[in-house]
């Protein structure tokens, strides 16, 4: 038996008795980052394979959602900072050893890429612009209404924007190559941010990178199949999702095997999920609601049963969000004993 007590009256908020420095902001940030990474990955992927026609939602709508996710994610990160007015210090240096640093940079660089991507499809997404629409008035500073054109009734205000648009449309593939690389970096980063912390045994496993990437891709696939109005696209993404769920379950099995075969602190960490305080929330929310039930529903769908697609999609998003909440929370409870 070993018992340790701090006797000097130390009771530092959020550190004693258990560490709780990261609250809801970090899991939300990781979830949105993973979702954005997945959406941009699919958009780039279908551009690279030349299938933009078959996957309109993935290529054109996905990046719009991704952009919102990135912006909201950065806001969540900002809310997590205790010294937020100094956030610009993140961008005065690049520290490759710090996942937080290159994640912040990856988000920062991928954001303009998403903006350019969306802008280059804007004419296809909104061929006709109703001047009464809020959207049009928001963009007034860069677009003008034109009457003459049959296909579109608006155009860019400046010539260089028009030229830039043509350039992006012509060079879509190289652009997609860059974006796909960044999206993978972003997706893996959401896991590596946690796994880089040796001090927290639950997080300190390299499987977290691929696991979070897969989970991010799966939440993105769920979003696309939910948003899509195109039947084949829905079916393809429901299949992709099914595959990703299987991969995720495989990684999670691996994760637990790694803990249980590890040192005492890892075994103790796994115990939080195998009988300890996170058991029910993890198995119910992440495994059953977030993975197994959507997998069953999607399989039924493949067998031609009618399943409203919103149910598996919403469950997958819920599972992905809960997974990050539980991992961030539980990781801070695990520690070395001395």
């Amino acid at each position: 038996m070993k018992e340790e007590i701090i006797t000097s009256g130390r009771m530092i908020p959020n550190i004693d008795p258990v560490l709780h420095v990261w609250h809801w902001q970090i899991p939300v940030y990781l979830f949105l980052g993973g979702l954005a990474a997945g959406l941009l990955f699919f958009a780039s992927y279908y551009t690279l394979t030349g299938k933009t026609k078959n996957f309109p939602t993935a290529v054109k709508i996905g990046p719009i959602i991704a952009l919102f996710a990135i912006v909201l994610g950065l806001i969540a990160l900002l809310l997590d900072l205790k010294h937020p007015l100094y956030f610009w210090q993140l961008y005065t240096t690049i520290r490759l050893e710090s996942p937080m640093s290159w994640g912040a940079w990856a988000l920062f660089l991928i954001m303009p890429m998403a903006v350019v991507w969306i802008a280059s499809y804007l004419k296809e997404i909104f061929p006709k612009l109703d001047s009464r629409k809020k959207f049009a008035s928001l963009l007034k500073f860069i677009i003008v209404e034109t009457e003459t054109d049959k296909e579109f009734n608006w155009d860019w205000k400046f010539n260089w924007l028009r030229k830039f648009e043509q350039f992006v449309i012509k060079e879509r593939k190289p652009f997609a190559w860059i974006m796909i690389v960044f999206s993978v970096i972003l997706g893996v980063y959401t896991g590596i941010l946690l796994s880089a912390f040796n001090a927290r045994p639950l997080w300190n496993t390299s499987i977290l990178g691929p696991l979070f990437l897969t989970s991010g891709l799966s939440t993105a696939a769920a979003t696309i199949m939910w948003m899509s109005k195109n039947h084949t696209e829905k079916i393809v993404f429901s299949r992709i999702d099914l595959l990703l769920i299987v991969v995720e379950l495989f990684f999670i099995t691996h994760l637990f095997m790694g803990y249980v075969a590890g040192s005492q602190v890892k075994i103790d960490a796994a115990h939080y999920f195998l009988g300890g305080e996170y058991t029910i929330s993890f198995w119910v929310n992440v495994i059953i609601l977030g993975l197994i039930i959507p997998a069953i529903l999607e399989s039924l769908e493949l067998l031609k049963f009618k399943v409203p697609i919103a149910i598996p999609a919403a469950l997958i998003l819920w599972g992905g969000l809960m997974f990050r909440f539980i991992m961030v929370d539980a990781g801070q409870v695990t520690r070395y004993l001395y």
Partner: peptide, 26 residues
């Protein structure tokens, strides 16, 4: 102090819980 953004990464990474947030944020 004036470079610290209060992200908490260092607190998470210390096995000894030797760091804390000063009420001023750093």
């Amino acid at each position: 102090h004036f470079e610290c953004i209060g992200c908490g990464a260092c607190i998470e990474s210390c096995p000894y819980d030797a760091r804390y947030f000063h009420p001023e944020g750093w």
